[in-house]
């Protein structure tokens, strides 16, 4: 059975991931898949963009891809 709502897309959850290791936007989207959060694609885009604006993580390019990360 689908289990939407198992995982919540919150600022704290994103902060925890980005403190652990640099991630691309797609890496983050994999952590907060719509089927896990119960959000729509549009909601996911909007909420994640707002969270990233607030966190304003540092960026670095690894293997030609932009990664976000936060220092503890």
């Amino acid at each position: 059975t689908p289990s939407s709502g198992d995982i919540q897309l919150t600022e704290e959850a994103v902060r925890r991931y980005l403190t652990r290791k640099p991630m691309t936007t797609k890496d983050l989207l994999k952590k907060f898949q719509t089927k896990k959060t119960g959000l729509s694609s549009e909601q996911t885009v909007n909420v994640l963009a707002q969270i990233l604006k607030r966190l304003n993580p540092d960026r670095k390019v690894v293997h030609d891809k932009m990664h976000f990360y936060l220092k503890e």
Binding site: T25, S41, T44, V45
Partner: peptide, 20 residues
């Protein structure tokens, strides 16, 4: 699908780049 994830990632990054 992965192409949907690509589109979502592109939309987020576009919004962040406007912000900066």
């Amino acid at each position: 699908s992965s192409s949907e994830a690509d589109e979502m990632a592109a939309a987020i990054e576009a919004e962040l780049n406007d912000f900066i």
